[in-house]
Nucleic acid binder design. Structure first.
Lengths: 114, 114
DNA sequence: TGAGTATACATCGGCTATCTTGGTATGTCA
DNA sequence: TGACATACCAAGATAGCCGATGTATACTCA
């Protein structure tokens, strides 16, 4: 099944903050991790990822630092900030509320209001 | 808590199809019903609703007809089509898959992949 | 009878996050 | 040397929701 891009919208930041909150990660790794973790359901691309990371960094929710890998390549690691954790907590709640609301609509038992 | 417009995006069509699938409804009624059904969590406005209804009608997922209410006012009722029911079924599945994927990311037990 | 509110339809511009496409550069392996 | 994975990034296009605004009718209550 295809992922509807419009479903992804609004959750990407949450996904990124959540993923990075576990351990500092670099872009390419985040891409692979998220896609793997959702069994390929998400098809997160770099064209979506990097702008999002930059946005979150600019908002002070992430902090970036460069590191040299054993392979010799430079990697830009992203680390969550305290502000990031606060926002993440909010976004988690927001998601739960949203999912609940949707379920309320999709529930077969829902009575026709009015 | 505020509803993130970006979360609504991509689910509005599903919500509308689902709501209308139970019984033909007119715009104003849909607005009130959805908002009531989600305990005010959604704040569906006419500026979002009517364009969406028109879009769905143009795609052949809804069919509209006018009716005169007892009150004397004209109401434009929307009815789901067979194509609409098929798409709704898809969208329900899509939503479940999506919600599952998100849960997989948000699950505290998720192991750091890679 | 007049004002205010609820009902009922609709359009339009602005916003913005995501997608697609394209680009640069390095390391590995055959 | 060529192919591929790794690793970063930019830019333009897209498309859908939101807020504001407009029109018109019916009801309520002073």
């Amino acid at each position: 099944m295809n992922t509807d891009p419009d479903l992804v919208r609004g959750t990407l930041n949450t996904i990124l903050l959540e993923t990075i909150s576990r351990a500092p990660m670099y872009g390419y790794q985040i891409c692979k991790t998220v896609n793997a973790k959702t069994s390929g359901y998400f098809n997160l691309r770099e064209g979506s990822l990097y702008p999002a990371l930059h946005r979150l960094e600019q908002e002070g929710l992430l902090k970036a630092y460069w590191e040299q890998a054993d392979t010799g390549r430079r990697r830009k690691y992203y680390q969550i900030t305290d502000a990031g954790r606060r926002v993440l907590a909010e976004k988690r709640e927001q998601w739960q509320a949203f999912a609940t609301a949707i379920q309320q609509v999709l529930a077969p038992s829902a009575l026709p209001a009015m």
